[in-house]
Amino acid sequence: MIRTEGLTRVFDGHTAVEGLDLEVHEGEVFGFLGPNGAGKTTTIRMLACLIAPTRGRAWVNGHSVAAEPDAVRASVGILTESPGLYDRLSAERNLDIFARLYGLSEERRKAQIKRYLQLLDLWDQRDRPVGGFSKGMRQKLALVRALLHEPPVLFLDEPTAALDPQAAKTVRDFIAELSREGRTIFLCTHNLDEAERLCGRIAVLRTRLIALDTPENLRRRLFGRRTVVRIRNLTPEMAVAVRALPFVQGVEESDGQLTVDLADPEAQNPLLVRRLVGLGAEVQYVTELRHSLEEVYLTLMEEEKTA
């Protein structure tokens, strides 16, 4: 659905994005992470035909961004970093203007505006000038604006930035709903929890692509897989015995618990627990140690810095 080959953008000798190779599949929610100035917005702008790449090629929904910009623009919806609404105009007028620019008939415009405003609880506010809207309402309205022409591909640049938790949840839930409808969503965010919840795969960018995989695979690649066993009567002998098991890659002992590095926890956890129980351990719980996406992200950034 979205493909880039060596996509590069240079501004006055400063490289904003370098040699980006990506492939985003149809119906996927694809997270695009990176620090400020990493080139996330520049990438979205190139893919939405707002700016041209300096080098490289890209296709969106089967259309080349260089050769068919009009077709690309017609098939994508974009939520920009700032909602960019016309404050003096009503919510309905704001939407109607964009629906007309996308070539929707009057009947379809009315139907689409009503449908989405109702979905996002803004229908009762449709006649109010948007200058008086809260940040959350503005963001929801900008999201509706991006959807009026039913684009198969959506670019969302920081959709929940600066929103209160409740508004952010509404927007997140709506994005999840859009994903269930089969849309391809390219989500740029600093909110790692949001990326974790919504995205099937994530890419980490710092001018160039640092990593691209599912959050789970990135975790495994960086931290391996670890099982935590909490034992009421933990003794040093138990740790030694676990360390001696052939499939155990490492053991840490602390505060009545063992943290064990395993290659295949699903197969090896039962053997581990059996061994401990055989040694008289009173096992309180066994759980997988999950590193947060934040830890993954920060580790990747640190590695990139060191490299």
Binding site: C49, D70, A74, I78, T80, S82, Y86, Y102, G103
Partner: peptide, 10 residues
């Protein structure tokens, strides 16, 4: 900041 969404239309 309304120019960017406007320029993103066809």
């Amino acid at each position: 900041r309304s120019l960017e969404p406007l320029l993103a239309t066809p």
